[in-house]
């Protein structure tokens, strides 16, 4: 009896956390899966079960394959550029220079601004008739006249996608730099001193001391960026709505495009997204030997 009571002792303390995870994480997943098998009218009336109908409709979408491939490009390119630039800038911010404190504070600004706001500003700045970026490009002689196909960056799918990747890099950089900067500061200075005594040049020190010791911080930043960029919604939605058609959509915005009228099908897209995130994370953990890193 007392043994049982002792075993159950921690339960009341764990309960709130368990309930929270259950309600906020697990329950929505259950509802998501349920919805993906239901037939739902555009204004939310449930008209019975759909079996695999939603999934069949999803896989019959002509745009699906290109959307998935575009998502891969989106994640790989944005995360790669962010990490490389982040490494360089973190190094810079780690060096003593006058006004470093102010510069570090300024770095927070694009992070603190809502991503939606940043995206809206870019959409406005790229307006094909009167956007300031286009006016600047015209003054520099890079574009010939306003209001043309050339200045309509967001109207051409490829150009629009490149601009959006740029915005995604911009908003991901601050977090990445801070994560890497924190990592850099944990590296003891005497390691560098010892290396210098042994006659290593700075590139050698960077490769043999900085990079290996930065690995935990780098891994965390990489994983969080992959998940963030994969799920990124506001940039694409505010700048192009994924249009024309779905030719600038990733799986996340495509899910929302479907949601406007095909709720069940949209839920099955979410299930697919969910599966992809799980796979990415598992592969990632395996490849980076996460456990050893964290311990």
């Amino acid at each position: 009896m007392t043994r049982l009571a002792r075993a159950l002792g921690p339960v009341p303390w764990l309960l709130p956390a368990v309930a929270l995870i259950g309600l906020v994480v697990l329950w929505p997943v259950v509802v998501l899966f349920k919805t993906s098998f239901q037939n739902i009218s555009p204004d939310g009336f449930v008209n019975g079960w759909a079996g695999l109908g939603n999934f069949r409709a999803l896989f019959a979408e002509p745009a699906l394959l290109s959307v998935v491939l575009r998502t891969v490009v989106w994640v790989v390119v944005v995360v790669a550029i962010t990490m490389v630039l982040g490494l360089m800038l973190a190094q810079l911010f780690n060096v003593e220079f006058p006004g470093r404190k102010a510069a570090r504070w300024a770095l927070i600004a694009p992070w603190a601004a809502s991503v939606m706001m940043t995206s809206l500003i870019f959409r406005w700045a790229l307006d094909y008739t009167s956007g300031p970026i286009n006016i600047l490009l015209k003054d520099l002689g890079i574009v010939h006249s306003l209001g043309t196909n050339q200045t309509d960056w967001l109207g051409r799918p490829v150009a629009a996608f490149i601009w959006m990747m740029g915005v995604a890099v911009l908003v991901s950089l601050p977090f990445t730099i801070y994560a890497l900067l924190a990592g850099l500061q944990t590296i003891p200075a005497d390691l560098y001193e010892a290396a210098r005594v042994d006659g290593a040049d700075s590139w050698r020190m960077y490769r043999s001391i900085t990079l290996p010791l930065l690995r935990p911080a780098f891994t965390v930043a990489l994983l969080i960026n992959v998940i963030n960029i994969f799920n990124s919604f506001p940039i694409i939605w505010e700048m192009t709505r994924g249009q024309p058609g779905s030719s600038t959509s990733t799986t996340t915005t495509f899910m929302f495009q479907l949601k406007q009228a095909f709720i069940g099908e949209s839920a099955s897209m979410s299930v697919l997204n969910f599966a992809m995130v799980i796979v990415i994370v598992l592969v990632f953990l395996k490849v980076t030997r996460w456990k050893e890193q964290v311990n």
């Binding site: 555009p42 024309p244 095909f262």
Partner: peptide, 14 residues
């Protein structure tokens, strides 16, 4: 129509 309309809005431009 509600569904057809959304689909047209989404794709007619292409």
């Amino acid at each position: 129509w509600a569904q057809v309309k959304t689909n047209i809005q989404q794709n007619i431009g292409t």
